[in-house]
Design a protein around this nucleic acid. Sequence first.
DNA 1: GCCAACGTTGGC
DNA 2: GCCAACGTTGGC
Length: 169
Amino acid sequence: MGRGRACWLMKSEPGVFSIENLQAARNQTAGWDGVRNYQARNFLRDDVKPGDRVLFYHSSVVPPGIAGEAVVVREGYPDPTAWNPEHAQYDPNGSPENPIWYMVDVRFVRSCRFIPLDRLRQIPELKNMVLLRRGTRLSVQPVTAGEWRAIRGLPEWANAEIQAAGTDR
DNA sequence: GCCAACGTTGGC
DNA sequence: GCCAACGTTGGC
């Protein structure tokens, strides 16, 4: 018991799935599927729990950055896209009986005014953030409580409460 | 277990 | 589109 709510940062290419897509989804909830990296998989399978907060990061766009916040609503379970030959992330090595890849479900919480990567780099409290470490490519990564506080304290989140309330369901 | 070759990520 | 940095694969 009692580990509290952990914080994560999850990357998505907005052309594939953006925070707007999450907000527009049924119940503002969607599966975080398609992850095909073992370290990220281990987080999804073992460590990401319902109630955990998620920073929704838009990658492979100019500029990249944090677009908002989500919350985990379902813990890790086998990712069915892995054994769907039609799917871009199909992996013939797994099966429903022997799943390799895992996913979680997340729900939209709020958007923020976009926080570009460049700006994150300038924040002293984020100096050691996994995202900012050279060569890091992890698409699911832990965020410390201090990092979370520093990011959530930025003015980009102003009015986000109102926005979140206004977009409820 | 080593490591070269190849594939992928993702900022720029 | 480029390319640095990683991750994975597979021969040995």
